[in-house]
């Protein structure tokens, strides 16, 4: 039976869905430190699709690749708990300040180092930027086709994959050969929860930076255990440094503002019959409704 080498691209993101008032600083910028960092939701949808392939073709392997700070290893462990086989953390100061293009360049260099792969799968977009650009940009850099907005993998054979994708109005089924990059839509199934045995097995899996931090001067912990989570820096991948990080990003943020909407003179009403009836009467008379 065919075995597939699958790479899941994932991102650790601040949970922008629950930004409270304390998350905004006085100058209008976001205080990232008070927001919980989570596994980007659509990347979890992508992981689920990968695990489903592995369910069907048990010899397949799933490697999660993420770029971010050292703490992003948290989502690699989360992925291991749910069904991934290995994780790679791409972390280096040289990557800081990357826009989508510089990010996709760094990721594509890391993927090239990984030699063989059949399917790269990632979420359509991340909730902190909502750009939906990194997936297609990685595919272009690797020179492979892409299928975006995927909802379901319909079939897999030795050399072909069929994917259903969700459009604004309707659906499409596309067939492609390997390797292929797929971005998974928010309408795809949610990821299965953590598996208890996997949690026990992997909870002490750390990156090299993490194990050094935990054990400080214990020489024994100088290597990340078993290389299940690997840590790569800029020197571990073959790349043109001019295309990385802030310097390699064509887009620059000129300014960031807190939005102030023009406040309207609003009429305050109570939730009693009198106020509501008066409002409804006004709307009907003005032919806004009815």
């Amino acid at each position: 039976m065919k075995e597939y080498q699958i790479i899941v691209l994932a991102k650790q993101v601040p949970d922008t869905r629950n930004v409270g008032k304390n998350a905004m600083k006085a100058d209008g910028t976001v205080n990232r430190s008070v927001l919980p960092a989570i596994f980007n939701p659509e990347d979890l949808h992508a992981l689920e699709q990968a695990i489903r392939i592995k369910d069907q073709f048990p010899g397949s392997t799933i490697t999660i690749l993420t770029m971010g700070p050292v703490r992003a290893a948290e989502i690699l462990r989360e992925g291991l708990y749910r069904g991934a086989d290995a994780g790679i953390l791409l972390t280096d100061r040289a990557f800081a300040g990357s826009d989508t293009l510089a990010t996709s360049y760094a990721l594509s260099c890391a993927i090239r180092k990984m030699e063989k792969y059949d399917i790269i799968i990632c979420g359509r977009q991340a909730i902190d930027g909502d750009t939906a650009q990194v997936g297609p940009q990685v595919a272009e850099k690797l020179g492979i086709p892409q299928i975006t907005y995927a909802e379901e993998i319909i079939s897999l054979t030795n050399d072909k994959i069929q994917v259903k994708r969700r459009l604004e109005r309707g659906v499409e089924v596309l067939e492609a050969s390997f390797p292929i990059l797929i971005t998974v839509n928010n309408s795809a199934p949610h990821c299965r929860p953590r598996h208890a045995k996997r949690l026990m097995k992997y909870k002490h899996t750390t990156t090299m930076s993490e194990s050094q931090e935990i054990s400080e001067d214990y020489l024994t912990a100088s290597m990340g255990n078993n290389q299940i989570i690997m840590e790569w820096g800029v020197n571990d991948i073959e790349c043109d440094r001019a295309q990385l990080g802030l310097g390699g990003s064509p887009t620059k943020v000129k300014k960031v503002e807190n939005i102030v909407f023009q406040a309207k003179e609003s009429l305050k009403l109570e939730d009693n019959d009198e106020d509501i009836n008066e409002l409804m009467k006004e709307l009907i008379t003005a032919h806004i409704i009815g």
């Binding site: 601040p14 922008t16 869905r17 930004v19 998350a23 905004m24 209008g28 910028t29 976001v30 909730i127 902190d128 930027g129 909502d130 064509p250 887009t251 620059k252 943020v253 000129k254 300014k255 960031v256 503002e257 807190n258 939005i259």
Partner: peptide, 16 residues
């Protein structure tokens, strides 16, 4: 809007 729609960003591409 950026960051989940909590701020507004002005983006430019100076050189490309």
């Amino acid at each position: 809007p950026a960051f989940g729609g909590n701020i507004i960003a002005t983006i430019i591409n100076p050189d490309c």
